[in-house]
Design a protein around this nucleic acid. Structure first.
Lengths: 328, 328
DNA sequence: CTGTTAGCGCATTCAT
DNA sequence: ATGAATGCGCTAACAG
C-alpha cells in the first residue's frame, strides 16, 4: 500500500504538497497538481484515514445506538440520519445493544477512545447519570426515546399529544371501555402516551381504571397472550390503544380468537405505522411519525453540537393519526 | 484528555512501561504495574485507539454491508456476527446500502482507507469483478447472498434444495398448478430456489410453465399487486411458493381478496420464517434458516481470513421446512 | 506556491 | 524489568 511519501517521491514533490493537493487545503500550481494526481493514479494511492484521524483528532464517524434491528420502525429514522451525515462528510456506525447496559458501555468505549466523534441514542438502558456524565465530555443526542433527567438534546414527537389523539379517536367512535397496552414503564414514550390516554379519558368524563392498563414488551406474541388473559377475566372492553403496532396486531388477533370482532366489538389503535400495521387483517389504525425527519433532525443536532454550534435542548416533530379498518 | 505520556509522568515511569502494562505485551514488575494502574485511575486515562490503530496497522473493526434494516431476516444474522466478533475483540459496523452500488463503493473506502480490517456482505449490488478486485487485497466474505463468479468465501444454506423442499411440500399435498414468485433475477438465492422449484416439478412429472413464474421485489404490496393481476388472467393455480415471507403474505392476501381460500384453494409457502410469517392469517408455511449460525459462521470465516488462517471457499448451513396453516 | 519540520498517541525495537 | 528512541501516515505551522 502506497503512502503519501511514496507519492511525493514519485511526483518529485514533498509530502506536504501531496497532502495539499488531496485535501485542497491550500493553493497548488496547476502543473504540480497534475504531476501529483498522475503519481496518485500510477501508484493507486489511497490515503490512510487512520493517520489523518490521528493527526486531525477527529474521525467523522458517528455511533448510533439501536436496541435491535428487528424493529423496522427505526429503518427510516436511520435513513434520515445517514443522509444528513453523508451530506456533511460523516459516516454512521450502527451498533445493536439489545437493551443491555454492559453492551452499551462497551461500545461507548469507542466514543471515549476517540474512534467516533459523537453518539446518537435511539434506545438506551443507560441511566440519566451515565448519560450526563458522558454528555459533559462528548457530543450525544437522543432520538425518539429520552431518558428522564438526561441533560442532552433530544428529538421526538409529542407522545402525550399522540396518545391523547389515539384515545380520543376511540372515544369519538363511541368506545368507553378502552384498554391501554403499554410497555416498559421506564420508557419515556410509553409513559407520555399513557398520560395522553388518561387525559383523553378525563376530558370525556370517563373514569380511569388501572385494571385496563396492560403491560407487555412491544412484541406481538406477548401482546396476544396478555390480551387473551385479559379477555378471560370477562371484563368489559370495546376499544384498545396499544403503544406499538405489533402489540395492537397481537391484541387484535387475540380478540378474534376469543370471538370478538375487530372493529365491531373491539376497535384497535396502534402506534408507529410500521409495515405490519397494513399487513394484518384488518389493517391497524395507528399514529404515524415522520421517522425520516426524526433521524435527520437528530443527526443535525449532533453535528451542530460537534461543530460547537448552539443546540436546542429538544425538538418536537409532527405526528398524525392514520385511520384504517381496525378503528374507523 | 490524558495521554500515555501524562500517565507515565504521573507514575514516574516511561510511556513504554505504561504501554506494556496496558497491553500486557511484556512482563512488568508487580509494584510498577500497580503504580501505573493507580496513575491511570487518577487521571481517568483511556487509550486513544486511533493512535494504537495507526501504530498496529489494524483497527479490529469489521464492516457489514446490509441492504436495508427493514428486513428483519438479517437481525439474527447480525447477532451471530456480533457475538463472534466480540468474542475475538472485534467490533462490527453496519452500513445500509439500499442496493446502491455507489453507496457501497463509498463505504468500501473505509476498507481501502484502512478504517476497518474486513468486510462482510449480506447483500450487494457490486459485480463479481468489483468483488474480486477488492477481494485480492482485502478480507471479504459473503453471507446469504452470493455473487456469481466472485472468488471470495461465502456461507449460505442450500437454496436449491430448500426451493425443492418447498415445492415438493406443495406437490405432496396434491397441488399441481404451482405459481413461483421470485425476485431480482440477479440474486443467487432466488435463482437457486427457482432451480429447486423446477427440479421438484420435473421429479413429479409436472411440466414447467414459464407463465407461472412471477417476478416481484420481495415486498408485500408489490407481491399483492402482482398476484391480483395474475388471478385476473383466469389462469389455474392451487399452490404458490414465494422466495420471501413478505411476498407470500402479500400474495395470500391477494388470493383472499379475489375470493380464493388459503389454503383450501391456494396453498402458500414462503421463505425465511420471519416474524410476519406467523403474524398474518393464516400463518405462513415457510423455510427456516439458522440465521444466527449463518452470521456466526460468516464472521468466523472472515476473522480466519484476516488472521491468515486457511478458509474454505464456501460453507453450507442447514435449513428446514416449517409447516403452518397456509400449506398444511 | 512549495519544502522542512514537527507532532498527533501509541507500540515496538534496541539498549541497558 | 525498564527507558530512550523510532516511526506508523498524515496535516499544520513556519519559512522562504
Amino acid at each position: 500500500m502506497a503512502t503519501i511519501h511514496e507519492v511525493a517521491r514519485e511526483a518529485g514533490v514533498s509530502s506536504a504538497t501531496v497532502s495539499r493537493v488531496l485535501t485542497g487545503s491550500a493553493q497548488v500550481r496547476a502543473e504540480t497538481k497534475a504531476r501529483v494526481m498522475a503519481a496518485v493514479e500510477r501508484l493507486g494511492y489511497r490515503p490512510n484515514l487512520v493517520g489523518r484521524n490521528l493527526r486531525k483528532q477527529e474521525t467523522h464517524m458517528i455511533l448510533v445506538f439501536l436496541g435491535t434491528i428487528v424493529n423496522s420502525f427505526f429503518a427510516k429514522v436511520i435513513k434520515g440520519m445517514e443522509d444528513v451525515a453523508e451530506k456533511n462528510g460523516y459516516h454512521i456506525l450502527i451498533c445493536t445493544t439489545y437493551g443491555e447496559r454492559e453492551r452499551e458501555l462497551s461500545y461507548l468505549g469507542m466514543l471515549v477512545n476517540r474512534l467516533v466523534d459523537g453518539a446518537l441514542f435511539l434506545t438506551t438502558a443507560l441511566t440519566a447519570e451515565d448519560i450526563n456524565r458522558l454528555g459533559e465530555s462528548y457530543p450525544i443526542v437522543q432520538c425518539n426515546e429520552y431518558v428522564e433527567g438526561a441533560r442532552v438534546p433530544f428529538v421526538s414527537i409529542d407522545n402525550e399529544l399522540a396518545g391523547y389523539a389515539a384515545t380520543r379517536h376511540l372515544i369519538q367512535s363511541g368506545r368507553r371501555a378502552i384498554v391501554h397496552m403499554t410497555a416498559d414503564a421506564a420508557s419515556s414514550t410509553s409513559a407520555a402516551r399513557l398520560h395522553g390516554y388518561r387525559r383523553a379519558l378525563a376530558d370525556s368524563g370517563i373514569p380511569f381504571d388501572p385494571a385496563l392498563v396492560l403491560t407487555g414488551n412491544y412484541g406481538y406474541r406477548n401482546a396476544s397472550r396478555i390480551m387473551s388473559a385479559f379477555l378471560e377475566t370477562g371484563r368489559q372492553v370495546d376499544g384498545l390503544f396499544a403503544v406499538s403496532d405489533r402489540m395492537a396486531a397481537g391484541a387484535a388477533a387475540a380478540c378474534r380468537l376469543a370471538g370478538r370482532r375487530v372493529p365491531e366489538d373491539v376497535a384497535v389503535v396502534g402506534f408507529d405505522n410500521v409495515d405490519i400495521s397494513y399487513m394484518v387483517e384488518p389493517a391497524i389504525t395507528t399514529i404515524s411519525q415522520s421517522q425520516y425527519e426524526m433521524g435527520a433532525t437528530g443527526m443535525g443536532l449532533l453535528l451542530d453540537r460537534i461543530a460547537g454550534r448552539p443546540v436546542p435542548q429538544s425538538v418536537t416533530i409532527p405526528h398524525k393519526l392514520i385511520v384504517r379498518q381496525s378503528a374507523p
